[in-house]
Design a protein around this nucleic acid. Sequence first.
RNA 1: GGCGGCGUACCCAAGUGGCUAAGGGAGAGGUCUGCAAAACCUCGAUUCAGCGGUUCGAGUCCGCUCGCCGCCUCCA
Length: 465
Amino acid sequence: MLRFHNTLSGRLEPFTPLHPPRVNMYSCGPTVHDYAHIGNFRTFVFMDILQRTLRARGYDLQYIMNITDIDDKTIAKSAAAGVSLADYTEKYTAAFFEDFDTLRIQRPDVICKATEHIPEMTRLVQILLDRGLAYVSDGSVYFKIAAFPEYGKLSKKDFDGLRSGARVDVDEYDKENARDFVLWKGKKEGEPHWETTFGDGRPGWHLECSAMSMAYGGQTLDIHCGGADLVFPHHENEIAQSEGATGETFVRFWLHSEYLIVNGEKMSKSTGNFYTLRDLTDKGHNPVAIRYLLMSTHYRKQLNFTEEGVRQAQAALDRIHEFVDNLGRRKLPAGDHRDMTDLCDAAARRFDEALDDDLNTAAAQAALFDFIRDVNRRLDAGEVGETDRARVMAFIGKMDAVFDILPAADDAAAEADADIAALVKQREEARRTKNWAEADRIRDELAARGVILKDTPEGTVWKKN
RNA sequence: GGCGGCGUACCCAAGUGGCUAAGGGAGAGGUCUGCAAAACCUCGAUUCAGCGGUUCGAGUCCGCUCGCCGCCUCCA
């Protein structure tokens, strides 16, 4: 039984979609004004585990993600760079999905850009105006929080005091209440704008997620997720806009991932602890190790990202890879063992139960390592047959459908260096004739090239360091 | 000030009242090996920030103290 922590209730709840097996899931994507950083990817890896788990459980998932390609930052930066907004955001949108590939994050089924959904947004604004939940002021349209009593239910904030009391100074816009948020920003000189019946301008940030998520996922979404920092005000505002317009529950399950911090403090460019994925891969870190590290802490707990952590993750990853390689090249007798069948079944069950429990990836990793140790023990004892191997690999395949941490087939091919293979063969011949001096010479030569040799009962295998 | 979270071995990290506190890294032994390396196996917390309390029983619940962090403004 799959269950998730719902931010709305603050509790773990059994997950059931509104219309099984269909699941509509929306997550807040990037504002494409720069390269995404490692903190962003913590959240996107979490979403990746979420979508893969849902698919592994047989759900017919439609995963929707937006691209914010118009906002203050994108407008300002594109202008500063002297390129069009579209050209500017296209560059960083492409970079964003390149990073997805690098981290093996599966792409959403629907990727929607704000600028391509202006009609959906203006329709939503008009409905809110018609229903008295929004008002025009000084050319812009604002959502009237006082008209939506449930405002604050997601972030557990009480705005009663603020509504009647102190009014914060509002310099630029004329709002009835300081907490009212902008739906539609009035036209400004030099900024992109669209014509509407309630005034020319451009959408406010919160609007796009309500409009696009409902356009693709319907009035009531099964899951909406994002980083914890979006709970307020972004998601709170989405609820107000959406439920205000439809009168229906907007989202049934809200899932939020906690912050990633770096070296114990919040990532910021000024303190020099700000990493993009590219910074880390340039330093030689394996992106799959980064992926592994990002899923080794539960998503609702802060993760302190360090390069030492990446190294530890790489070591853990190596152990898994080693296990699969070793199992693959062993010569095994035909047949199977009852004990091995039970072992595989139990591992698969434990792995699934861990993920079912609010995506407990750390516990799922532990299940994997326990399994690896148990199989290694039996391998040493000669208690693993060909059929057992197939069962082990079947579980490994199931695991990797969610974790996606095993080497891709073409990775292995890329490593197949004929020159190295020839030297390894020469050394094996030297060893066969007990020409130890020559064998050691070749070993040293390869070591100098970063190649590590492993003399196994099945022959010598090698890998690049 | 309001809301929320965290503090488990040298490091990372599970644990959502009840058999001997998962797992990974590092470390220490051992097996294999021509020697190595790699790999594999084994061993590592009478103890869960501290102090009280509830309970037959608490790392797990309650209270207080100390330390750390997030949100309350754009932010994954």
